[in-house]
């Protein structure tokens, strides 16, 4: 299990290939990549991700560990960026390895749903009009709650 927080962009395909190269006895792998979204009708210039480094590292390690135990995964990795990000850049990548597909899907889903509400990152979007903190969505709470 590897958890990496970084300011620099990462290459989603290269990360996925490196993760798959460590597969031993796995029959399934899921890679989820979250991107900076900018809508044509309401474009953002950039996004700043603030984080609480020590707690973020710890929370993501705990979540990945929980996913491995709960879904009997062979492995789970998380990469999460912080700092300034631009439209279409990857923000987060979650990768799971399991004997079969359902566990790989469920593990990735669990990590992402729980990360949204329980990992200390805060998004601020910059538009031509100024900067605004992204508000937490009640749908995210509901998504996290279904794993409890």
């Amino acid at each position: 299990m590897r958890v990496r927080l970084q300011a620099e962009p990462f290459d989603p395909g290269a990360e996925s290939n490196a993760f798959l190269a460590r597969a031993r006895g796995a029959g399934a792998s899921v890679t989820f990549t979250g991107l900076v979204r900018s809508l044509a009708g309401d474009p953002i210039e950039s996004m700043t991700l603030e984080h609480y480094p020590a707690l973020a590292q710890r929370q993501l390690e705990t979540l990945a560990g929980e996913a491995i135990t709960r879904f009997s995964l062979i492995d789970a990795d998380v990469i999460h960026r912080f700092g300034t990000l631009y439209p279409n850049e990857p923000i987060v990548q979650v990768m799971t390895l399991a004997p079969h597909r359902q566990a790989a899907f469920d593990g990735a889903n669990f990590i992402m749903d729980t990360l949204k509400t329980d990992a200390p990152f805060w998004k601020k979007e910059k538009r031509a009009q100024g900067e605004v903190w992204v508000e937490a969505k009640s749908g995210d709470d509901a998504a996290a709650a279904r794993w409890k």
């Binding site: 609480y52 999460h80 987060v92 990992a119 200390p120 805060w122 903190w133 508000e135």
Partner: peptide, 10 residues
């Protein structure tokens, strides 16, 4: 002790 708004990562 850290105090902060609801988290919005991912």
């Amino acid at each position: 002790v850290a105090l902060f708004p609801p988290m919005t990562g991912g």
